[in-house]
Design a protein around this nucleic acid. Sequence first.
DNA 1: CTGGATCAGTGGCTCATCCACTGAGCCATC
DNA 2: GATGGCTCAGTGGATGAGCCACTGATCCAG
Lengths: 229, 229
Amino acid sequence: MVIVRDTLVDALVARLRDGVLSGRYPPGAYLPSERELAAEYGVTRTSLKHALSRLAQLGLVETKHGVGTRVLDYLSSGGPELLPMLVVADGPGWLEETFQARREIGALVYARAAERRGAGHCADLRALHEAVAAAQTADDAQLAECEIHRVLAAASGNRVYGFLVNSLLNAYLPVRQLLIAPFRDPGRAAGRLTPLVEAVCAGEAGEAHTAAVRYLAETERLMLSGEDR
Amino acid sequence: MVIVRDTLVDALVARLRDGVLSGRYPPGAYLPSERELAAEYGVTRTSLKHALSRLAQLGLVETKHGVGTRVLDYLSSGGPELLPMLVVADGPGWLEETFQARREIGALVYARAAERRGAGHCADLRALHEAVAAAQTADDAQLAECEIHRVLAAASGNRVYGFLVNSLLNAYLPVRQLLIAPFRDPGRAAGRLTPLVEAVCAGEAGEAHTAAVRYLAETERLMLSGEDR
DNA sequence: CTGGATCAGTGGCTCATCCACTGAGCCATC
DNA sequence: GATGGCTCAGTGGATGAGCCACTGATCCAG
């Protein structure tokens, strides 16, 4: 386990972000001036500006020179990069919707990959599949599992799907412990993955699609119920 | 037309980002130290830090205290928020893949919305549809069209799809001129939208799905060919 | 009523300076 | 020879004072 110490700016971003997500700073409203905020949080204006700059990059606020910093409506203008923080902020609601999107988009990606399968991709997939089965620790299995999704996304022939999968996987990071559960027993994980991986490698598009949907639905049911821990 | 003057930090971000995307700073490599970079670009270290902070938020680099700033592999760790800059950077390739993803995910969203249609959503949709038809300028039509996508995403009952749609729509912003083309003639735009909107409002899920795919495919063909301008 | 000047308040940016962290290398100790 | 602690150079983190540029409201002269 690596000890990670948040930087001051990270902490500031978290505080301000929570203020926005919780509605303390509602959409359309202006934040207090940088000088006021800096005084309120007991930091330099420089540090506060760093934090605001990152909030702006996230699409949570918008800063205009000479005017002020306005809160945006993240629901109507935000992107999936907000998911990780939303999942921890209000939990189950966002998590379930993320799972649903992942399942449906995952099925799309899997079907595409099956259609376009190439020898190289299949080799990667088999190797990763074996890595999951052989993994001694839950962490290893989890990492390998993530890699499988990424390899499939790459095999879909559309890099945009790679980005979407990355975002959806990142949304899980904060609740990683829950996710690891189904992989505590490497044998079971292997058993569950086989049909999907085999189907994709064999190029059976229709069957792969069906298998993918079934696999993802089952996996997520386990994750949400917290069963098998 | 509003005149937007980029801030110094914006320009810095653009320069550094191009350096990363172009491979001048390859994945895994370390950037020069902040002091060196600041000198090279003729700016204060403070400003440079702001820029690096935003690059980090974008997932392009990773900064570690006492060590340095390392370039990440955006293809394997980035999210769809990178699309806008990739589309302008190397154009057609990313644009086509974005269109494909938008078409397939759009169809998913449309089908979902048709399944779960509610009176309120349908009213919104009809109003927007009429706004597109009535729009006097291409800009208006484009904005209303974006709104239709957002309303549909909202009607799908999954806020994550809203985020995904936002990201994909944002990817178009840099090439907005191209996109506006099919809407130069409001009458045609209206004619093209009708079947989809009607189908969703009528709740014919299967037909809506088919119509959505056909509509999106046609629209994007026009966009890519640049025809009808 | 209009157009320009003023002014208070806001964010943009700089500078000089110090602190905290990391990793490499040295060296005495075991 | 291996180990553990030390120093040191180089890196990013943070400060705070200060100045500049922009915006919008207000006021006033025309």
